[in-house]
Amino acid sequence: MKKAYLGIDIGSISTKGVIIDEEHNILASVYLWTEGNPLGASKKVIQELASQIDLDEWTVVAAGTTGSARKLVGAMCNASIVKNEITAHAVGTTTLHPDVRTILEIGGQDSKIICVEDGVAVDYAMNTLCAAGTGSFLTSQARRLGVDVEEFGKIALGSKNPTPIAARCTVFAESDLVHKIQMGHKKEDIIAGLCNAVANNYLNNIGKGKKILPPIVFQGGVSKNEGVVRAFADSLGEEIIVDENGHLMGCYGAAILAHGSGIEKPFSFDVADMEFVTREVICENCPNHCEIICVYRDGELIDSWGNRCERGVIRS
């Protein structure tokens, strides 16, 4: 049996998974929608990953999770390592693109920039409270314009005269957008304007004060939008690399980190058939009323978190 490592990236919008070998070659990969059910989506990912490899040849000796539901899914699949998405993405991308200097990333609800020197992440920034200019912003504007967000990039490329749109704030962007539609601007110009606004908003917020050096890799869901890619290329005057596996960088990084952790824990594909339930408990020990999440596997408590202090500890 050869050793393999599993990585899952559970984002707000999509869930991604890979299995890699000891040389970090990708053996299997899956990408599907989270649909508000991180545990269900992860089970599906695990099932599909299992169907892509020969289980008599490979045995998964360590699993890693990342993304906003990393803790929950990490408990579910007995992960060796649970890592934040910035570190996971940096590790994944620098493994596939060892010469990369800047990683731009725009996901469903957050955006970040990672600066790399000699294959190692040395600086980063992430959006603060505000989610303007992320994937969910583009999706809601697409709906307003009656266009599929997947079509956005192609339509934007058809524009010769992008309409300037104020996209610093989603609320202002919407009223500006409605105004421009009513003034008679063409749909493709408005869509191209939105793509430019997303790129410029990103560079002025997340990218502020950072040296954006080539090679530049652009990833996250929004990197599938050619309009935004072109806007970045125009603004920065540099080639923008979009890897076809860009969406897998987080889970790929998580798998590499699981390998690198040196912690081997039994992983069973049977978790896909087990029942996982979460229950929210309000701690009544003080006025803070912490919301504690308890995770049960087939009725047995396996983990809990959310308490601010020791008084709220719930043990299995």
Binding site: K83, N84, E85, I86, V122, D123
Partner: peptide
Amino acid sequence: IDTRLESFIDI
């Protein structure tokens, strides 16, 4: 906050 702090210290 935890995500940001953890990645910051990693970096």
